[in-house]
Amino acid sequence: MPGKVKGLMDRLHDGESVVIAEGYLYVFERRGYLQAGTAVPEVVLEYPEMVRLQYEEFYRAGSDVVLAFTYYAHREKLSLIDREADLEEMNRTALRMAREVADKTGSLMAGNICNSNIYVPNDPDITAKIKSMFKEQIEWAVEEGADFILAETFSDLGEALLALEAVKTYGKGLPVVVTMAWHKNEVNGRPATIDGVEICETFKQLEAAGADVLGLNCARGPTTMLPLMEEVKKCIKTPLAAIPVPYRTTKAEPNFQSLTDPLSGKRLFPEDLNAALCSRSDIKEFGRRCLELGIQVMGVCCGNECHYTRTLCETLGRKVPASRYSADMSKHYIFGTSEKLSTRYTSGEGKQHTA
């Protein structure tokens, strides 16, 4: 039952790290269960056993949180494919499976709300629609036993504040993690949200509005996200979260949407992003820097796979269920050092051959 495991805020107050495995959209798109473009998590209803298995696999890789796959399971997205009638069932099914897996594994379960894609500053009608979208998803998450709410991937401060207000109003006191997706916008030479608010001011306002954890997710890879996290750390005292995409973004191309193929010059997003994937060593470096910066909540977003989450957790000094299968090159037939190996490849002729 919910509440048996140590809560999110208790862990953070005790100085612990919390890993959140994200990236379900890309997992299921790659496997042929979700359409790039519309990006609606229809797989929750059509192949629920696959979603449950992914929850379990991320747990085995070390995730402390079973994040309910309700990202983009909101009215704006479902209306694109004429499936609004499935809205509640899609959300509740994802939440219930997440709760079941969390109870089975002793994990936390998080409800999830996200960018609405319809936000327009100072538009009362749009604001009302967004508030309604947030309200229903939050209430379902509460009813299905979420331990906290992750409100993520906001590019406008205004919409992030709406999400935070909604969780505070309808979340029955659950902690809320708010993460922003940061693009290329600037104000007076400083990084800014799409609605034109400088980075430090953005996080100060979210902190003042009562967010329990604040940070960045999606959009940027580790290399271009961490410098922004250094900026955020200077501005607020709230616990920090960093959940980048596992792509090698650069100063010239800071977001994975802007990455281009070094061979052809063509945009990689969304179907050719594998050409820019991070290595496991990149994820190790990301985890190491998070520890140095005092970032307590971390994970990997769009493009994540279990080996990235496992690598991150092992960088934090953990041994997770999937660590049983972590690389052991001592027994590799060419590079190994075990006395049980044939010497044909590990010495003499083999070494000359591989060299």
Rank of each mutant, 00 (worst) to 15 (best):
Q296T: 03
T153S: 13
E159R: 11
T223M: 06
L150D: 05
Y47G: 02
M9L: 14
F148T: 12
T224W: 14
R248N: 14
L240W: 13
R324F: 14
T337Y: 00
G189Q: 07
Y345G: 01
G7S: 13
D261E: 03
V65W: 00
T179D: 06
I236S: 08
P239A: 06
T315R: 08
S279K: 02
I126R: 15
E339R: 13
R92L: 12
E159H: 13
E16L: 04
V65M: 12
P124D: 10
Y345E: 14
Y33K: 01
Q257F: 14
D156Q: 12
R75L: 13
Y47D: 11
D272H: 08
K172E: 11
M97V: 00
D195C: 07
L226G: 00
I20C: 05
E46L: 14
V43A: 05
Y33F: 15
E198I: 03
Y55N: 00
E339I: 04
G106W: 01
T127Q: 10
N117V: 10
E165W: 04
V43N: 05
G348N: 11
P191L: 03
V142F: 02
P222T: 13
H13W: 08
Y26C: 09
T309L: 09
A39C: 11
Q35F: 11
N304K: 04
K6Y: 04
P124F: 05
A141G: 13
G221L: 01
G287A: 10
H183W: 12
L95K: 06
R220F: 06
R289F: 07
K4D: 08
T70P: 09
A128R: 15
L12A: 15
S279Y: 03
T309V: 12
R30E: 15
G23R: 11
V300M: 15
A211K: 04
P254N: 05
L67F: 08
Q137D: 02
S107K: 06
R31T: 02
D14I: 00
F28Y: 09
K331E: 12
M109I: 12
A68F: 11
S264G: 10
A275T: 13
D82Y: 15
L80F: 09
L291G: 09
Q205W: 05
N217R: 08
A85Q: 14
V178D: 09
C114R: 04
A181F: 00
I20P: 08
M329I: 08
I81V: 15
Y308V: 04
L78A: 06
A252V: 14
I118K: 11
N274F: 15
E76K: 12
G158D: 02
E152T: 01
A98K: 00
Y71W: 08
G348M: 05
T193N: 01
A327P: 04
Q257M: 11
E152S: 05
P175L: 00
L53I: 02
T38N: 12
C200D: 10
R344I: 06
S155I: 12
K168F: 01
H183M: 05
F134M: 10
S155D: 07
F286S: 07
A39Q: 08
E271G: 14
A110D: 00
R30H: 13
M225N: 00
Q352S: 13
A61F: 05
Y119H: 10
V44Q: 02
T337M: 04
D125T: 13
V5K: 05
D10A: 15
E198L: 03
M225S: 02
I334T: 13
D86G: 01
Y345N: 09
Q296Y: 07
W182M: 14
K251G: 11
T309I: 15
